[in-house]
Design a protein around this nucleic acid. Structure first.
Lengths: 183, 183
DNA sequence: CCCGGTTGTGCAACTAGTTGCATAAAGGCT
DNA sequence: AGCCTTTATGCAACTAGTTGCACAACCGGG
């Protein structure tokens, strides 16, 4: 049940319309909580019905018209409650590790190319994160808010670093496996 | 669509009943692809209907009776196909990072205790993985299968190591935040 | 011998997330 | 004016996963 809170967080940071939220999810919050525009619109409806957000008075509500939302005090309170509440970590689900395990029993034929592709994607994501770090967190920018946000970004950077290293290692390992095509 | 393949992998490794599979998921495959017994039973039914697995002839099928399954050639072929097929990485979803970001806007009150709890859980999991590594992958055990399985376990170890480090750092960071209770 | 706990299998309802498509206004182009 | 693309919002159907419960056989103790 995190999507409504992801949206509340985004809206507290800055009131937005559904599409603006969708774009912001693609760029920043979506790095650790992705959502499609359909999910977002549906959830905005629920949040409004619950009295957590409201449409900004200025905009007239018509289909195809921009409709911006802002967080109400009740929404902020709910967000604070959820943030402080204890939550059990959900078990991981990683198809790539699963495939590696499957490869151990049915053979590694064909998986290598995809591993390379994933490696490229993770390298690309890592570069993007490092770009953001350089841009948004230059030395000196260390208010409480900045420090916390930087911490979150660091998690992203470290995770991508892990994946690039792990995938590199996996590919090296493959190269040493008997029956490997060295051409 | 990974659960059926997770089950096929487990069954290729060793034919099992639904409950045995459930237990094995709790111990090993579940570390990166968790599943409840209900999911497993449902999926076993589908896999049987698809002709990928069959019940071992010996057992008589009655409710409350053990019913073991084994993988048929078609199942093995499907597993090989899936393993080799290219798959796009699914976007992450991490509630803890989301909460940290929310904490940046609504304050860190109350989240610290849960962070400590998570740190303990990750430390515990890390210790378990290291135990398994010592037990199952002593030096010298390095057939192709062992190397691949070890690689998967290494991913688990490295990820837990990352989380323990990140959480420790987050807690240090908190201690330096203005308004932090030092008692 | 029957009663309660454990083992094993399973259904049904619910929740969350994804996919595909529909609708509407606005702006440019000819 | 008519048409095409882009921006913006939204519904409906589907898929995957979770939760709660039910049922059946077996096994031990009083």
């Amino acid at each position: 049940m995190s999507l409504p809170h992801a949206i509340l967080t985004a809206l507290v940071e800055k009131p937005s319309s559904g599409l603006e939220l969708t774009r912001r999810f693609d760029r920043s919050i979506g790095y650790f909580w992705s959502a499609t525009h359909q999910q977002i619109y549906r959830e905005l409806g629920k949040l409004e019905a619950d009295g957590f957000i409201r449409t900004l008075p200025s905009a007239q509500p018509a289909r195809g018209q921009k409709k911006s939302y802002e967080v109400l005090p009740a929404g902020r309170a709910e967000l604070a409650r959820w943030t402080a509440a204890s939550q059990d970590p959900k078990p991981h689900r990683d198809p790539l590790l699963l495939r590696m395990r499957a490869a151990a029993v049915v053979g590694t034929d064909g998986i290598e190319a995809d591993l390379r592709r994933h490696l490229d994607l993770h390298r690309w994501q890592l570069a993007e994160y490092e770009e953001i770090e350089k841009r948004d967190f230059p030395p000196g920018k260390d208010s409480s808010q900045d420090r916390l946000r930087h911490l979150v970004l660091r998690a992203g950077i470290d995770l991508e670093t892990f994946w690039t290293q792990w995938l590199s290692r996996a590919l090296e390992e493959f190269a040493e496996l008997p029956g490997h095509e060295t051409a």
